[in-house]
Amino acid sequence: MTHIRPRSPNIQSYRPQLTSVLSIANRITGVVLSLGGVGLVVWLVAAALGPEPFSVVQGFFASWPGQIVLFGFTFAFFLHLCGGIRHLVWDTVHGFELASIYASGWAVVAASIVLTAATWIASIFMGA
């Protein structure tokens, strides 16, 4: 019997780095935002159906779980937006030096946190 050669480990042993972590984060936030898009459609349909269904959807978003979901969507949105802009810049064949890759990567993380916080602060002021 021939023994099948083993395959050396990949994701089980390869060290996470800013490059791969931000890449998978962009992918996960993309999936999350697709679900957010479905949420947007539900919200629009509810608004079209009238005040009763609309208040049910609004009631969910105003509740604690709803607020946490919205906060998650906000952060996912900014991470995907900033990461997406970084990708668009790469597509023009700019910013490929390793130092630039790391600088833009950390800038994406910082900008996402700041913009998420700014959005929620603005929203709280509008609500007050």
Partner: peptide, 14 residues
């Protein structure tokens, strides 16, 4: 390492 099980998707011989 990524937070996945040590034998995540690993066939028996590996």
């Amino acid at each position: 390492r990524f937070p996945v099980p040590k034998n995540f998707g690993v066939p028996a011989e590996s």
